[in-house]
Design a protein around this nucleic acid. Sequence first.
DNA 1: AAAAAATAGATGACCAGTCGTCTATAAGTG
DNA 2: CACTTATAGACGACTGGTCATCTATTTTTT
Lengths: 204, 204
Amino acid sequence: MKITEKYAAKKEAILEKGMEVMWINGYNGTSVKDIVNAASIPKGSFYFYFESKEDFAIEALNYYLEFNEKLSESLMGDPGLSPYQKLRKLFKVRVDAAFNLFECECGDFQGGCFMSNLAQEMSDTNERIRTAVNEAIEEFKKPIIALLQAAQAAGEINAQLDAEKFMNFLESTMQGAFMTVKASRDPQALEDAEHFLFDVILKK
Amino acid sequence: MKITEKYAAKKEAILEKGMEVMWINGYNGTSVKDIVNAASIPKGSFYFYFESKEDFAIEALNYYLEFNEKLSESLMGDPGLSPYQKLRKLFKVRVDAAFNLFECECGDFQGGCFMSNLAQEMSDTNERIRTAVNEAIEEFKKPIIALLQAAQAAGEINAQLDAEKFMNFLESTMQGAFMTVKASRDPQALEDAEHFLFDVILKK
DNA sequence: AAAAAATAGATGACCAGTCGTCTATAAGTG
DNA sequence: CACTTATAGACGACTGGTCATCTATTTTTT
């Protein structure tokens, strides 16, 4: 259907622009007006495409997931890379996505991970968002767990580790490092995280 | 002076109650009205004790620092504990403070670390708060770095590690684990963090 | 023309912060 | 001591503005 396609395209455009501002300013720090300004749509149109601001945030989470998937698509499909090489490159892609987003128009070391930003801000006060973030994070981890197991099977990393357990630790650590980088405006925390995760813990 | 003492006592009472609600609901999620309600004072009085909501948050950060210091005071001064034993116990004290605060009146696995909550929410949009959080975190780390170095000198942990670098990683990891626990309502992330930090990395 | 999509503008709740006023206690004066 | 003056602090109504959301209307499509 033509209408549905047009509708979906516009909705996605609103999600893209709106997510950018909510990524930087947080949920409570972003008004619906900020979103419609960013997306260059009239105020009233927002409620034609989204039930509520809360719903927008949850849909933006899924959009973020797709956004991240696209970023690593070519890397994940590259047959010339070993699982471990993919892991290391994936780390860099994610860091770039977190802090060089939108061609730097918002300054350095801002943003971080949209999922963990929402998790941190809203988990205590909004159950729907908390659940949605949780599910998004689970989804996000899946392909990386597979990569870890493949790297173990290939003998590239310590095979003693429980891949899923380590993935959880990896994810927590990344989120913490993002937060530290935001606060300190210094990428050191991410470099340290990379060192301890890959060179110390994963070392064979 | 008697007046000043009274003033200080009341200010501290407002900080205590106000911090509790900002700890759970965040900066943007907490209105001045919420704070004055929690402290049972009239709205107007808030601005007698604090210049602005922003100033309140910054003063609350320092109050949080003292709050944390008091919690670990007896532990840190215990001559019967080795540096490493103190580190392990400190971990538990901090976790308890983060998630069992205010006698559980706000439910389980809410709250986390007040400093990192503020850091995460406000770093991108409020430079004063970002700087204040940064300084608070630096202050917070100092005694733990000393403890790490003492544990190294005593031969209790891996002496090869740069204590300051490891402390930064420890702090990032803790913050990430707090966030994960908040979002998942499951303490597993903290248990995993404890395992990797103490049993894997610090192991001699 | 009828139906669907898009939007302008309205709505009332709420926001941070200000204001003038009131009261209780302190300090100054003889 | 008594009496006056000064002021610390309490207090809620109020301000201009913003908030999320809704309703009534216009525009577009069929």
